[in-house]
Design a protein around this nucleic acid. Structure first.
Lengths: 130, 130
DNA sequence: CAAATACATTGACAAATGTCTATGGCTCTG
DNA sequence: CAGAGCCATAGACATTTGTCAATGTATTTG
């Protein structure tokens, strides 16, 4: 960190691209699915809940329109994070139990709550009330 | 998973929002920073590299214009994931060493390569060569 | 000071995204 | 079968995002 590389003007080093593009694409797919407050909360709720959850529950919880919730769940489903189970007029959603370890780790890391806030306490922010 | 909740028509259960909105916002900020192939590769490269990396290296590695790389790095910096160190005409970037555990876990999970691919081997895909 | 190099910033633009309203499909109840 | 409830889909629209060309700033070299 303190030892900076020695450089010459007009010449750059080689940086190796670490992740196979296929792996990167797949990872980005999951990250994008999680990178929305509503979807992150949905995933967190599904991860916590022992019982599957239907769309109407989420609609009331998030104060968003039903199509919007459906849209979000559709994205989570497309990313392979959730699975659905229809019963009568309800469709119950739950976190996929057969998530591959890499995806599972991402979900765990993204929904881990009590552990530690992301922002350090030293970074005081004014006006976060809503 | 097999025991679906009992419901009445016209009445929904309560789904508790798990994450404090502030935590969710912060997490989403990091997720969005990682949810781009180029930025994910940059972070992976920085995580692997012992030596700080300058913009020109990344520009040559990703075949993107220099302003685009600067733009991506700016996002990573805004998300608090990378830090910069200027020396002469070069600006060296590295992964922040003081990442909070939650952010660190996200970065680790997103850049973990060799471990396991996200897609199971059963999902064969045609035409991934590039 | 003038030229060259590395990086940041600005402005522009197409594509993707999040949201809503309106509508359609499916299932249960009378 | 008709109505009602739950969910998905389609279309519209404003915002965000990723990218580039052009330009500005800072630093080294001559």
């Amino acid at each position: 960190m303190d030892q900076l590389p020695v450089r010459q003007r007009g010449q750059c080093c080689q940086v190796t691209i670490e992740l196979p593009s296929e792996v990167a694409e797949q990872t980005v797919e999951v990250l994008k699915a999680l990178a929305d407050p509503t979807r992150l909360q949905i995933v967190a709720a599904l991860a916590r809940s022992q019982q599957p959850v239907c769309v109407c529950d989420l609609t009331t919880a998030f104060e968003l329109s039903q199509p919007t919730i459906s849209h979000h769940i559709g994205k989570l489903k497309a990313a392979g994070l959730v699975t659905s189970e229809k019963q009568g007029i309800w469709v119950y959603y739950s976190l996929r139990g057969d998530l591959l370890p890499a995806a599972r780790r991402l979900v765990d890391a993204a929904t881990a709550d009590g552990a530690v806030p992301l922002a350090s306490a030293t970074q005081t922010r004014a006006g976060v009330g809503g």
